[in-house]
Design a protein around this nucleic acid. Structure first.
Lengths: 218, 218
DNA sequence: CGGTATACTGACTCATCGGTCATTTCGATG
DNA sequence: CATCGAAATGACCGATGAGTCAGTATACCG
């Protein structure tokens, strides 16, 4: 992030080492702040989270936050994007590995349920940004929306293929993709609320069966 | 709301009439303000809506709002509760009328889809309040949550009965109820975004089939 | 019309919060 | 240990917005 000025003909070794050390510290602080912000945003939501609170949670002063991020908005997006990239990567990998349409749909559900089981704050973070009307959507709402659509698209492609191959009945694939996505979300919500007394595996099986029978021929 | 002082031995008729007139005005203003608040909250969300904006939308001064409601929070809750009661009543009536488990489930989906089709602001209002963690839930988040659980409970009861009668396979009824609820929500979301090009009837049929096959035996 | 009670108004207060920057602390170097 | 540059700090600033209230307009009545 810091503008890098070429530092002339001094010994490269020392210069390199110095900068490396600084970069390590920067990286550490950055991660530390992000992690704290993550918790606070998940707890309070964007509007109600304060920079003072994030600073306290990170164990630094408020001013320090601004040495590493230019604004509250940017911290939020960085936090969100970090996990979004991870969940996206995991989902894609799982879909790649899985065989057959049923396997892929199950893999989708399973991956997301497992991911959110271990990243509850992330789920809350995305939930908070829901429901903003597109017209006046704030920056971060739009970001969450993009992430969501990306995930739905993955499902949609699987379903399109499945319909073409007559593995499932000819449903409207995009609508079905949204439905599967939201069903997954529904179950995560129940788990986070402690409303589901079932094991994770049971919930995965439940969600899969419901959708699979739902879109199947019989 | 105003403390009512007994006004002695004047002619009762006039007094009654005067109070009635006042009550009419009050009722009118109250509704006017609520309707404006409704729109603004749906558009901006609770935090970003301002009392000044609501006042402008209602065509009154800010101070006037406080003559009819004690706080922003209370206006929000009144707005929310008004529609919540209505949707609840409609849903219950529709469930009563419908015959058979399948009819009732279809009626549930249909009622909600139709209601939200005509009360888009209400949907946005409830969406905005989603995802708050139960522990630190703000007042209005808790209210939305209650409404949601009430609706889910209606579905749950239908499903329990259905399972007992072996009309559907022995699914976990509460989880299935949440799933149906969220699937409905999913489709409303798509419609509000303009993402669904299908007719309302098609969407109703789609949602019903998906769930019905999902929980059915075959 | 003048008097009075009530409704309404919007300028004001006060608290909060994002972001800034003069000052202090830290730690590397010679 | 003295020096010096970078990192960190937190008091401060300006903006915003919920809620208040002294003053004004309005409606009603004798």
């Amino acid at each position: 992030m810091t503008a890098r000025v070429s530092n002339g003909p001094e010994e490269g070794a020392l210069t390199a080492m110095t900068r490396t050390k600084r970069e390590i510290v920067t990286e550490f602080r950055t991660a530390e702040i992000l992690e704290a912000a993550y918790r606070v945003f998940a707890e309070r939501g964007f509007d109600e989270a304060t920079m003072a609170e994030i600073a306290r949670a990170a164990g630094v002063a408020k001013g320090t936050l601004y040495l590493y991020y230019p604004s509250k908005q940017e911290i939020y997006e960085a936090a969100l994007r970090q996990s979004a990239v991870e969940v996206d990567a995991r989902t894609k990998a799982a879909l790649e590995r899985a065989a057959g349409v049923d396997g892929k749909i199950r893999a989708f559900i399973e991956t997301k349920l497992r991911f959110f089981e271990e990243h509850r704050d992330f789920f809350r973070l995305t939930e908070r940004a829901y429901g903003y009307p597109a017209r006046h959507a704030s920056q971060h709402a739009r970001l969450v929306d993009e992430l969501r659509l990306g995930q739905v698209k993955l499902l949609d492609q699987i379903l399109q293929q499945a319909v073409r191959r007559k593995a499932v009945r000819p449903v409207r694939t995009e609508a079905a993709a949204f439905a599967i996505f939201d069903l997954t979300r529904s179950i995560v919500t129940q788990r986070l609320r402690g409303a589901s007394r079932a094991t994770l595996d049971d919930d995965i099986a439940f969600a899969f069966e419901l959708t699979w029978k739902g879109i199947g021929y019989r």
